[in-house]
């Protein structure tokens, strides 16, 4: 007999029925990405186990002006660059920025 399973994600651990808390991720934009996003930082909730590339897709939907830059965008978690298969954890800070231009 088929069994349906409903999994709930929530941001408040005190809420009963939650499978596991959503992961809160702070996002920072630098350089002209701030202008494209219209803000310097934002906090997003993602399901536990979410990969960075999936999170970025979600972010590009929310900030369509940034989506045009996704091929050249550089992405860091904390102070290190990370690939798309990086699994986000609670408290991670993601930074999104255009190619660098120091010197």
């Amino acid at each position: 007999m088929p069994v349906s399973v409903l999994v709930l994600f929530c941001s408040d651990q005190a809420v009963s029925g939650c499978y596991k808390s959503a992961v809160q991720v702070r996002v920072h934009f630098y350089s002209y990405f701030k202008d494209l996003a219209g803000l310097a930082e934002v906090t997003e909730s993602v399901a536990p186990g979410s990969r960075l590339e999936d999170f970025l897709q979600k972010l590009f939907l929310r900030f369509p002006k940034l989506a045009a830059m996704k091929k050249s965008a550089l992405v860091a978690v904390g102070i290190d660059y990370q690939a798309g298969d990086y699994v986000l954890a609670e408290g991670d800070e993601v930074s999104l920025f255009p190619p660098v231009q120091g010197g």
């Binding site: 002209y32 930074s95 660098v100």
Partner: peptide, 14 residues
């Protein structure tokens, strides 16, 4: 160091 800086160090100019 200078070449790699221009690839990975997050500094931008306007």
């Amino acid at each position: 160091i200078v070449s790699e800086m221009k690839r990975v160090v997050p500094i931008w100019k306007k």
